[in-house]
Design a protein around this nucleic acid. Structure first.
Length: 511
RNA sequence: GGCUCCGUAGCCAAGUGGCUAAGGCAGCGGAUUGCAAAUCCGCCAUCGUCGGUUCGACUCCGACCGGAGCCUCCA
């Protein structure tokens, strides 16, 4: 098995991936609180970790990937009340929205999606364990984690309890220290609640991840992920809970993805202004952002942009860096992506085989088969895989793919494969495309047939285009270029681009 | 104020103590084309500023300037 380096926020360094169970990777990603339709920011983590899983699986690991759904929370309660529906109904609706978005982006690797409300018993047992060990205390129907008892509290974010000068929020009077956080919250009137040893209530925010990751992946698992915004307090508190109860590390690697930024008014998407009066500029920027393209419901974005383009854009930046997002980057990404798709259709014209139907390989069989694709391709593949092995550097991986496209186009040009098709060269071309298929598959790109933009009339349009092109071909043959150019120009105005190639004329839709 | 992180070409974005600082978008020149489109070839950066360490730094250290995130359940 190849050595894969993984950066951990906890150690602030890369280290070779050594798994708890040989050959298996347990991976937990903090999922959404389902109270609103998801936006692009919610998709970053899933796309990145889906890619991580693909690369690990490609490399020979068995991977169990868990993404939780937080379906009990203040915001869900508030939103459902505002809408006049139940927490459960709202959560189900928003979960469905989330899942649809993931599916569109090709995030298919999630093995389990536990819901907090399905694990109340597990959560209560976890809290009881902490209380029994003296790390938590009940207070007037709430249960709090006692930060003072956790000697290494703050190790993930390099904070000390003394530094935590907060006021403790609305429940400060029930806490021993302002830094203590709720494991269990007593129910207010009309709120959904569950019975517990401390009376009716519901779980605090952090506890579900500790309890569910333990239930599914065990006390210590390999990779724990989430957005950079979750490092504190969420993941810090997860560590406190889990490691205090178990006396052993919760996760070996803490991976955090960078946050989405919209346009030049950089800032997190969907965030809240900090303190209304304190910082007007910051507050305004945040408010503006929440209405910007970055924070619109993801399905609206999908109406304008193909999911593949979005996925490519997300993977073009290193996962730990902030991602600039907006219409312009998206359009740039769309143009860049066309280079791949043109190559695919070009190869399909030559070989008759659509790219997405080519077979996949794993790393071992890929290693064995590269030689047939030639030295240059082998070198590019090595570069791609080395980048992915080095903390999943998708930016370099993507860059090597563009070089790959150029190499294949050049091969086709040099051998004139569009006009003559010697079997040896055809086989060599296919060997190259199989490698490309292998590598793009790791990124979760181009797995299905290219999306056709239009609807029912496609068949008719194709027929008509065939006719127009045929008539134009007659004009060209007769050197009537005025007519030929008029046809091409008018089609261009209608959004159709003609390409006169040695073997005939092709057409495609613009944009 | 505390804790993290960033500042690379017109824009986006990788990367390294010393060979030619990836890739994309845009632009320019050439090949190809009836002309285009597509494709191919070539061109386009000394790495925020100032110091320091070093034989040598864009890469390490310090200061400064500019920007971001977290410190309030936001992926």
């Amino acid at each position: 098995m190849p050595t894969i380096e993984v950066y951990s926020t906890l150690s602030r360094a890369k280290a070779p991936l050594v798994t708890v169970t040989p050959g298996h990777v347990g991976m937990y990603l903090c999922g959404p609180t389902v109270y609103k339709p998801s936006h692009i920011g919610h998709m970053v983590g899933p796309v990145i970790f889906d890619t991580v899983k693909r690369h690990l699986a490609f490399s020979g690991y068995r991977v169990t990937w868990v993404v939780n759904i937080t379906d009990v929370d203040d915001k869900i309660i508030a939103e459902s009340a505002a809408r006049g529906t139940t927490m459960r109904a709202l959560a189900e609706e928003m979960t469905a929205d989330y899942l649809a978005n993931l599916a569109a982006l090709g995030v298919t690797g999630i093995d389990e999606m536990p819901k907090a409300t399905d694990h109340i018993g597990t959560i209560i047992a976890f809290i009881e364990g902490l209380v029994a060990k003296g790390f938590a205390y009940a207070s007037d129907g709430d249960v709090y984690f006692d930060v003072a008892r956790d000697t290494d509290y703050g190790k993930l974010t390099n904070r000390s309890v003394e530094q935590m000068q907060g006021e403790g929020g609305a429940t400060a009077d029930r806490k021993r220290s302002a830094a203590d956080f709720a494991l269990w919250k007593r129910a207010k009137a009309d709120e959904p609640s569950w019975d517990s040893p401390w009376g009716p209530g519901r779980p605090g925010w952090h506890i579900e991840c500790s309890a569910m990751s333990k239930a599914i992946l065990g006390e210590t698992f390999d990779i724990h992920g989430g957005g950079l915004d979750l490092v504190f307090p969420h993941h810090e508190n997860e560590i406190a809970q889990s490691e205090s109860l178990h006396g052993r590390p919760m996760a070996a690697y803490w991976m955090h993805n960078g946050l989405m930024q919209a346009g030049s008014a950089a800032g997190k998407v969907g965030g809240r202004p900090r303190d209304g009066s304190a910082d007007d500029a910051a507050a305004q920027a945040a408010t503006k952002l929440s209405k910007s393209t970055g924070a619109e419901p993801f399905k609206n974005l999908l109406a304008r942009h193909r999911p593949e383009v979005i996925r490519l854009l997300l993977l073009s930046t290193h996962y730990r860096s902030p991602i600039h997002f907006g219409e312009e980057p998206l359009q740039e990404s769309a143009r860049a992506m066309e280079a791949f798709e043109r190559l695919f259709t070009r190869c399909e014209r030559i070989s008759g085989k659509p790219f997405h139907t080519l077979s996949h390989r794993d790393r071992r069989t890929g290693d064995a088969a590269v030689a047939a694709a030639g030295e240059e391709i082998a070198a590019l593949r090595t570069r791609f895989l080395a980048a992915m092995d080095d903390d999943f550097n998708t930016a370099i991986a993507v860059a090597s793919l563009f070089d790959f496209v150029r190499a294949v186009n050049k091969f086709i040009d040099q051998h004139g494969l569009e006009s003559r098709k010697p079997p040896a060269e055809l086989a060599a071309l296919e060997a190259r495309m199989l490698v490309l298929r292998e590598l793009t598959g790791i990124l979760g790109l181009f797995l299905g047939p290219p999306r056709v933009t239009a609807g029912a009339d496609e068949g008719l349009v194709a027929k008509l285009m065939e006719l127009v092109i045929e008539i134009r071909a007659h004009a060209r043959k007769a050197k009537d270029f005025a007519t030929a150019d008029l046809v091409r120009q008018r089609l261009g105005e209608a959004g159709i681009v003609l390409e006169d190639r040695p073997d005939g004329t092709g057409w495609s839709r613009k944009g």
